[in-house]
Amino acid sequence: MHPVIRPAAPGDADAIARIYNHYVADTCVTFETEEVFAAEMAQRITDTLEMPLPWLVAEADGAIAGYAYAAKWKGRCAYRYSVETTVYLDPMCTGRGLGLPLYAALIDAVKTLGMRAAIGGIALPNAPSITLHERLGFRKVGHFEQVGFKQDRWIDVGYWQRLL
């Protein structure tokens, strides 16, 4: 499957929130615990694009099948060339080869902006996300034990980094 990858717009917020809220409610891959409504998601998209950092969507079969975006790694000025990268797929679209081209497009977009480092945080265990990051040249650089508590359990977080 060859997705159409394009910049996100606030009008994509309903579909993006639907995808994200699955991960909020049913998984530990995000540490958010409350549903994110479309208006809040539209504001997040707008804020990201105004930084300016990329927020991309992948369309497959005429619908948004996933999204990826970059955020500032930290607020201090010296970190300005580092971003945290994130990718989410509609749970009905995983395993179809959409994540790799979407995440690769995000990496290309942050390189174009002159970023030096991309950092991906992964709630562990999560073999598919680790595989995706490592296929794109990320390497594990850190592991924090039991830093999140969700779904009645403690969760480790690993960090993968790719120098651009």
Rank of each mutant, 00 (worst) to 15 (best):
L49H: 09
D47H: 13
Y23V: 10
I119K: 09
Y20T: 11
G75I: 06
E34S: 14
I130H: 01
K150L: 01
W160H: 04
I155P: 02
V57P: 03
V87I: 12
I5A: 04
P101E: 03
R96S: 01
R80Y: 02
Y159R: 06
E32W: 10
H2Y: 09
M1D: 13
A123P: 01
P128L: 03
Y81E: 12
Y88H: 04
A71P: 00
D156R: 04
F138R: 06
T94E: 15
P7S: 14
R153E: 12
D47Y: 07
R80V: 01
I155G: 05
R135Y: 00
A25P: 04
P54E: 09
E84M: 07
P54Q: 10
T27K: 08
E84Q: 15
T86Q: 05
V4R: 14
L98V: 05
A68I: 01
V29E: 14
L164F: 12
G137A: 03
R135H: 10
R18I: 02
G148E: 07
I64H: 01
V4N: 12
A58W: 05
R139P: 00
A118L: 02
E59I: 04
T112R: 12
P52N: 14
A15Q: 14
G95M: 08
V141D: 05
D90G: 06
Q161W: 01
T27C: 05
F144E: 09
R76W: 12
N126A: 02
R116P: 00
Q146R: 15
A65T: 08
Q161R: 08
P52Q: 13
V36P: 07
R153P: 01
E32A: 13
P128T: 09
S129M: 00
Q161Y: 03
G120H: 00
K72S: 09
G97D: 08
I19M: 07
F37R: 15
E145V: 11
Y81I: 02
Y88W: 05
L98C: 03
V147N: 06
T33L: 08
A17Q: 11
N21T: 08
V29G: 07
R135A: 04
A60T: 10
Q43S: 15
H143D: 12
A39K: 15
T48Y: 04
T86W: 02
N126W: 01
P101M: 01
M115Y: 05
R18S: 13
W73V: 00
P10W: 09
